[in-house]
Write a protein that binds this DNA or RNA. Structure first.
Length: 211
DNA sequence: ATTTTCAAT
């Protein structure tokens, strides 16, 4: 009956396949972004909208989201009128991959012009973050520096997504075997990535000294 | 031990 709501929700299999935080996520040529948008009115926040997107036509899902964000958040961008009061929003998104270097840059540029928008990013897996000097790592630090909270998804986040974005029809979320281990491992990795560079240098120095 | 990554064919 309610086909609109059905189309807003993600099929179970699709969610599991794309959000599984396994070490070797083979063949996933799509990235999903589940979002919750809240309006901030004084100290209160009101849930305003939610849904999901995936990358299309060579456009990364984060940039696709930026394309829609004005329509999703009325009054966020404003029309540049004198003394115009822009509305404040908080967006939380859950992405199957962390953003690539280019998306991080574009997001940072976008957000630095919008102090009335807060963004929290949860990620299932880290995208191209293996090399110490990868541009993706740099991009994540850039986002952190402009105030974006980036967190690796843990059980409670998958659980929340399952309840919120998945057509789960009463079926409860069943964690895959390695969920917790993988989440802890990726979380440590992200923590190391987001540490200020000085600390990283210090670590390298210790390594050189064999300590 | 090694494996993959918002395709391209």
């Amino acid at each position: 009956m309610n086909t609109k709501l059905d189309s807003v929700l993600l099929p179970r299999k699709k969610f599991i396949y794309h959000y599984k935080n396994m070490r070797w996520a083979k063949g996933r040529h799509e990235t999903y972004l589940c979002f919750v948008i809240k309006r901030r009115v004084g100290p209160d926040t009101l849930t305003f909208d939610f849904g999901h997107l995936r990358n299309r036509n060579g456009c990364h899902v984060e940039l696709l989201f930026l394309r829609y964000v004005g329509a999703l958040c009325p009054g966020l961008l404003g029309y540049g009128g004198p003394g115009e009061k822009r509305l404040s929003y908080s967006i939380t998104w859950f992405c199957s991959w962390s953003p690539c270097a280019n998306c991080s840059t574009r997001l940072s540029q976008f957000l630095s012009r919008l102090p009335n928008l807060r963004l929290r990013i949860f990620v299932s897996r880290l995208y191209f973050c293996d090399m110490e000097d990868s541009r993706e790592r740099e991009g994540l630090r850039m986002l952190k520096n402009i105030g974006v909270q980036i967190t690796v998804m843990s059980y409670k986040d998958f659980f929340y997504c399952w309840r919120t974005f998945v057509a789960c029809k009463q079926s409860s979320f069943k964690a895959w075997g390695e969920l917790h281990q993988n989440s802890v491992r990726l979380s440590r990795k992200l923590k190391r990535i987001l540490q200020p560079l000085e600390t990283e240098d210090l670590r390298d120095a210790f390594k050189l000294l064999g300590l």
